[in-house]
Design a protein around this nucleic acid. Structure first.
Length: 368
DNA sequence: TATTCGGTAAACACAC
DNA sequence: GGTGTGTTTACCGAAT
C-alpha cells in the first residue's frame, strides 16, 4: 500500500528543498529534529556548518564575483544556468517566473517544517560544528497546510500539473515526515484537492492516460492567495533571526505568476535594507539587469501613484506594474515596505549585485 | 462565544 | 475483486 510511492517515477528536481535542509536542519535556531533527510541526501558533516551553508560554499565557487555572500545568509544560485525549472525544454522556461525555483534552490524550506512557535532568538544563533549525530532521527510534521503542500508540488512540476500520485511523491520526497506518516494524509490531500477551489482537475485524454485519475493544477486566480498562505506560514514559523530561513517562502512568490503576467514578491525588501544580497532564486530573464532598473523606476512611480490601487492591499501587499519587453509584469511588495529612493538607487547601481543576482527577492534580504 | 480554517476519518462511487 | 482516485460528509481542535 505504502510502497507505491517508491515505484513512482521521480518527479522531484535534483535540487529539492530537502537538499538545503541539510544545512538548515543544523541551525540551532531550529529544532534539530525538524527535518529528516532523504536517504538520497546523506548528511555530510563537512557541509553542515550553519555559518557556511553548503549552498553558499557552492555559490562562492561558482560565483566568485558574488563574494559578498559574506553578508548573505541566503543561498545563491547561478540563475541563468541553473535549471530552476524541471522542464528545461519548456518554451517559456527562460522567462518563466512561474517556476518556484525556490523549491529547488533553497533547501532551507524544509527546516521550517517543525518550527515551534517560539520566537526566542539570541540563543539561537548558529553554532559551528554541530555534529550530525545530534540530529534526532525522526522529522516533525511540516507547518504547511495540505493546500500549501499541494500547491508547492504542482508548482514544482514542469507542466504545472500533477496527478495525485505525483503530489504524493513530491510531498514524500520533500517532506520526510510523510514518508513514515500514516497514510491518512493522502486522504487529506485528496480531500483538499476536491474541496479547495484553488485546485482544478484536468481530465486526461484517455489516449494519454498513464494511470488512474486526473491531473491537477493550480487555479491562477487563487495563486496569490496560496502564496500569501505560504508567506504567512513562513513568517509564523520563522520569526527567528535565522536568516537562512527568513526568505524561504517569501520567495515563493518571486516566481509566482498570474494569468496576466509575472509576479515577484519581495517580502523582506524593506525589513533588511542592510543586506543587499545577490542571491538568485528566481529565473529571471537574461535582461535581468534591465529588469531591475525598470522595476526600480516603476517602484518610485507606482509608490506614489498606484499604491492605493493595489489590488492586493487587503492582503498587505502593494503591486507595482511595469512592462518588460513585450510582457507585462508586476512586482508585489509587502504593504509595509519602506522602500525609499536610496534603496531604489542601490538596486539600480549595484551592478555587481545585478550581475550575480537573479532575484530581487534576495536584494531584499530579510529579518523576521 | 461564534466563526473560520485546517486536519482527520469515513463512506461511497467510479475507474483501472 | 483489489486498488487507486475523487467526492462528500462529519467531527474535532486551533485560531481569529
Amino acid at each position: 500500500m505504502e510502497d507505491d510511492t517508491q515505484t513512482l517515477p521521480c518527479l522531484s528536481p535534483p535540487h529539492s528543498p530537502a537538499t538545503l535542509s541539510k544545512v538548515l536542519t543544523l541551525s540551532p535556531s531550529l529544532p534539530q529534529h525538524s527535518c529528516a533527510l532523504p536517504s538520497s541526501l546523506p548528511l555530510s558533516p563537512t557541509s553542515l556548518s550553519p555559518s557556511t551553508p553548503a549552498f553558499c560554499q557552492q555559490t562562492a565557487q561558482s560565483h566568485p564575483h558574488s563574494s559578498q555572500a559574506h553578508s548573505l545568509s541566503t543561498p545563491q544560485f547561478s540563475g541563468g544556468q541553473n535549471s530552476h525549472c524541471l522542464s528545461p525544454s519548456t518554451p517559456s522556461n527562460e522567462d518563466d517566473l512561474t517556476c518556484l525555483s525556490w523549491l529547488h534552490q533553497r533547501d532551507n524550506l524544509l527546516p521550517l517544517q517543525p518550527l515551534p512557535k517560539i520566537t526566542s532568538l539570541p540563543q539561537l544563533e548558529p553554532q559551528d560544528n554541530v555534529p550530525a549525530s545530534s540530529l534526532p532521527p525522526s522529522p516533525s510534521k511540516p507547518p504547511y497546510s495540505f493546500s500549501s503542500l499541494i500547491f508547492m508540488a504542482i508548482e514544482d512540476s514542469p507542466e504545472k500539473q500533477l496527478p495525485v500520485r505525483g503530489i504524493y511523491e513530491w510531498i514524500v520526497n520533500n517532506f520526510p515526515y510523510y514518508r513514515a506518516a500514516p497514510s491518512g494524509w493522502r486522504n487529506s490531500v485528496r480531500h483538499n484537492l476536491s474541496l479547495s477551489k484553488s485546485f482544478r482537475r484536468i481530465h486526461r485524454d484517455k489516449s494519454q492516460s498513464v494511470g488512474k485519475g486526473s491531473l491537477w493544477c493550480v487555479c491562477p486566480e487563487y495563486r496569490p492567495a496560496l502564496l500569501e498562505v505560504l508567506r504567512k506560514t513562513h513568517y509564523c514559523h520563522s520569526s527567528s533571526s535565522n536568516l537562512l530561513n527568513s526568505r524561504i517562502l517569501l520567495e515563493a512568490a518571486e516566481c509566482g505568476q498570474t494569468s496576466v503576467g509575472n509576479t515577484m514578491e519581495i517580502s523582506d525588501l524593506a525589513s533588511n535594507g542592510s543586506s543587499l544580497s545577490t542571491n538568485q532564486f528566481c529565473p529571471f530573464t537574461t535582461d535581468h539587469e534591465e529588469l531591475v532598473a525598470i522595476e526600480s523606476v516603476e517602484l518610485k512611480e507606482e509608490t506614489e501613484e498606484e499604491a492605493e490601487k493595489d489590488s492586493l492591499a487587503d492582503s498587505g501587499y502593494i503591486e507595482f506594474h511595469y512592462y518588460q519587453g513585450q510582457e507585462y509584469h508586476y512586482l508585489v511588495l509587502p504593504g509595509d515596505t519602506e522602500l525609499d529612493l536610496e534603496t531604489v538607487e542601490i538596486l539600480q547601481l549595484d551592478a555587481e549585485a545585478q550581475e550575480a543576482a537573479g532575484s530581487l527577492l534576495d536584494l531584499a534580504g530579510g529579518s523576521h
